[in-house]
């Protein structure tokens, strides 16, 4: 890997709007660069991209290239040993410095990340917006969501007793009930066996499209990518390309 010197600021792309906020819908990254704090090592060259509502952009790169860290940074969960420059905008507002819980950026991980101390319904209710009031009403919404995913009767199950595919679906439902404005997927299908994988994959992307959520997927496996693909392991390469416009799948 060839690194830009730590002192060099990420090159702002010529085509980038200079105004902090704009009305571009969807998820926008502006000249984002991450570096390891102790060494100053830059993980990948400055990255800019825009993801339209309902579409999914895939970031491809080998493990260790910093793609998971990028997602954590976007979600507001990055640990202290990283420093970042650049901005993340959702539906036109700059959320770079917002606390994670305000960003409304949902995340899905390789393992479903269901809360082990809550039932399936408890997990879903955790995500469900507080706007939905009343015990019964919330329970109804949760059960409808389960039914929509073919998981009728799973409400009171222990998440640990679910199969990987079922867990993945519950995790997605939970994320969607929180009504995110953008979605980040970190190798969400890696743990699934091949048959399930296709099934869950289409389930996920159908929901994303249906809800019109801009989604960023990171994976090391090109087969996961439903749409445009960016490679993160090419410093200086695609970074100059300001907009992560549609790329032909490889």
């Amino acid at each position: 890997m060839n690194h830009a010197p730590p002192s060099t600021d990420p090159a702002p792309a010529a085509t980038l709007p200079t105004e902090a906020g704009d009305n571009r819908a969807g998820l926008v990254l502006e000249a984002v660069a991450l570096r390891l704090r102790p060494t100053g090592k830059i993980l990948f060259p400055p990255l800019s991209l825009q993801i339209a509502p309902g579409t999914t952009t895939t970031l491809l790169g080998p493990s260790g290239c910093g793609k998971s860290s990028l997602l954590r940074w976007m979600g507001g969960h990055l640990e202290d040993d990283f420093a970042a420059t650049g901005r993340v905008l959702v539906n036109g507002s700059d959320r770079t410095d917002w606390p994670a819980e305000k960003r409304r950026i949902g995340m899905l991980f390789q393992d479903a990340g269901l809360f082990p101390h809550l039932s399936v319904a408890g997990n879903l209710a955790f995500g469900l917006q507080p706007r939905v009031r009343g015990r019964r009403q919330r329970r109804r919404v949760v059960e409808e969501a389960l039914a929509s995913a073919g998981l009728e009767g799973f409400a009171d199950r222990d998440p640990a007793t679910l199969s990987g595919g079922q867990q993945a679906r519950v995790a997605l439902l939970r994320t969607l009930l929180a009504e995110p404005e953008a979605l980040l997927l970190d190798e969400p299908f890696a743990a699934l066996d091949p048959e399930r994988r296709a099934q869950i994959r289409s389930f996920v992307f159908a929901r994303i499209e249906e809800r019109g959520i801009p989604t960023l997927l990171v994976t090391h496996d090109a087969r996961d990518a439903p749409g445009p693909v960016r490679h993160l392991d090419q410093p200086g390469g695609p970074a100059g390309n300001a907009r992560g416009g549609p790329h032909p799948p490889r």
């Binding site: 979600g75 994670a100 819980e101 950026i105 991980f109 101390h117 955790f126 995500g127 917006q129 994320t175």
Partner: peptide, 24 residues
Amino acid sequence: RLLAVAASLGAGPNRRWLTVKLPL
């Protein structure tokens, strides 16, 4: 990651603390 998930679902620090960390 469980705490990150909770935050991404809109749970602030107090809710994460009381409903995720302490029970776990």
